[in-house]
Design a binder for these strands. Structure first.
Lengths: 213, 213
DNA sequence: TATTGATTTAAACATTTGATTAAATCAATA
DNA sequence: TATTGATTTAATCAAATGTTTAAATCAATA
């Protein structure tokens, strides 16, 4: 039985109506970790941002690393959660899947613009720790989506299309800080572009799948 | 006159044949910063990796932050240096430019696979510091490349095509650690795919530019 | 050889930071 | 009201880390 369980058992007190202390800490941790990355985040930052003191943070989560791990797993699942259920749905036509994935992904990322850059760079810095924590391996490799693409274009590795789709959807969010800093983009244009891309990318991907090379 | 200048003036001694101490430090800094990011890098790591002692590192570069800044400017210029000269060449046809950018970029990134993730995430963590240090603003916005795209497809914002091209080229390198950790990719497949993409992406982009929506 | 500047060695400094502790306080409840 | 568990307060610890210092050593040169 974990410390959290102990607390949850007794959590019938004042904060049952509003958010529990544990959740306040997690919410602050999501914010600060995502903003600054693991190494640059101080537990004191999180405590301050959550409005809860440092002692309790360590009491609930034992260590900065354990708290980070909890948040990371959430974030990884959020990042893959959009694509996997759709990719594995055997009742949807390829064209519909592409549209769904693109639209849902862009909507998710418009709400959480720094999700991809956070996950990609933190996983890179600690690869071993998160191996297979995505559950994306077989769920993607043997997905119905991959099979549908293979059927349509047997001569090209289907990963090409997956990477292109994800690249066109996700890359703008990753490059945004740089492009913004470089003066190429501003927030207003960015929003407009990403909404346009919900319609453009599926058309582009479909045409790539039709293309005879 | 900076400290570096003082040293360079007197640098007619033993290390004129092999690499100077300053360069050894920078080389180690490139490696360690790129691998672990700014916050997770300790100056002691860099000193150790360079085979040169900590005191001299601070003597040459004054501080971790100043050393980092030197490296970052290099990296940013490397990342944009491939695309800007080609984009601004007024003697090249659009089709040729697309092929050149894709091929050169993939070759660069095969040599420096973690360049994009490093630059994007560090710029994000310290946006203010690197604003306009790319010199990419007008060089990209008013580039001949952008004008050529506008001419070909006046109804769509040319940034769409730039983002798609960069996304298809760069994203695989950013996602690689995650896909590898998830078991979707391995190094061998990755290399093969990226070499195939040198031919595929230009064809795809051209077909996107032809497409009537 | 004597000098000069580059580099090393070893130590120390101040600060930051993750983590812990013990006592006090607060809120709910039996 | 007395009890119980959640939370705060305030202080402290130990380790890590950026930076500095002074003296010693080394390599080239005049």
């Amino acid at each position: 039985m974990s410390l959290q369980d102990v607390h949850n058992m007794a959590k019938k007190t004042k904060e049952e109506l509003d958010v529990s202390a544990e959740e306040k800490i997690k919410e602050a941790a999501r914010k600060v970790f995502t903003l600054k990355g693991y190494a640059a985040t101080r537990t004191r930052d999180i405590a301050e941002a959550s409005g809860i003191n440092l002692a309790l943070l360590n009491y609930y989560f034992r260590s900065k690393e354990k708290l980070f791990h909890v948040i990371m797993i959430e974030k990884i699942q959020k990042l893959f959660g959009v694509i996997i259920p759709i990719a594995n749905d055997t009742n949807l036509a390829l064209e519909i899947k592409i549209e769904l994935i693109v639209t849902n992904y862009i909507d998710l990322l418009l709400e959480h613009p720094d999700l991809p850059l956070f996950v990609f760079s933190e996983v890179r810095n600690n690869t071993e720790q998160f191996i297979h924590s995505t559950n994306a391996d077989n769920l993607l490799r043997n997905s119905s989506l991959i099979k549908q693409i293979e059927l349509k274009k047997p001569d090209i590795n289907p990963l090409h299309f997956l990477m292109s789709l994800l690249g066109m959807v996700v890359f703008p969010f990753i490059g945004k800080p740089v492009f913004t800093a470089a003066g190429i983009l501003d927030e207003e244009i960015f929003q407009k572009l990403m909404n346009e891309r919900k319609a453009l990318i599926p058309k582009w991907i479909k045409s790539m799948l039709e293309l005879e090379l």
